[in-house]
Amino acid sequence: MNHLAAVLPSVATPLFAGLLSSPVGVAHYLVVGAILFTAGVVCMALKRNALGVLMGIELVLNGANVNFVAFSSPYLRGEGAASLGLDGQVIALFVILLAAAEAAVALAITLNFYNNHATVDIDRAEDLKG
């Protein structure tokens, strides 16, 4: 945390001073990605509704996607920064596709669970507990 305190002031000047007039960089996108990711993780941990957990997963995947796109974007690259190029966008596409597949299976499982237990509260899924 000490390190963070040392970093923050030096960061704050270029990041927040001329936010409206200076172009955004990769770091801005990373901040958005981090917030989405954290919200998703907290959502997964906190929600007791199975569908809520599923929404948390979607948020996490999106946070990662934001980072991939930011690293691949030709518009955001600062001088001397490496870039993922097209690969970032392609990986983001695959993430979107796999997320769709995952959501379909997870939803089918949830509906099955709902049929058998008449609830979507995942704390009640304890049949296999010894």
Binding site: M1, H3, L4, V7, L8, V11, P14, L15, S22, P23, V24, G25, V26, A27, L30, V31, G33, A34, I35, F37, T38, V41, Y75, L76, R77, G78, E79, G80, A81, A82
Partner: peptide, 21 residues
């Protein structure tokens, strides 16, 4: 978690530089 991620985002110098058009 957010603190760690933000720190990681700001650690790398070239990422903080404004974008070149």
């Amino acid at each position: 978690l957010l603190a760690v991620l933000l720190q990681a985002a700001f650690r790398v110098e070239p990422w903080r530089r404004p974008a070149v058009a």
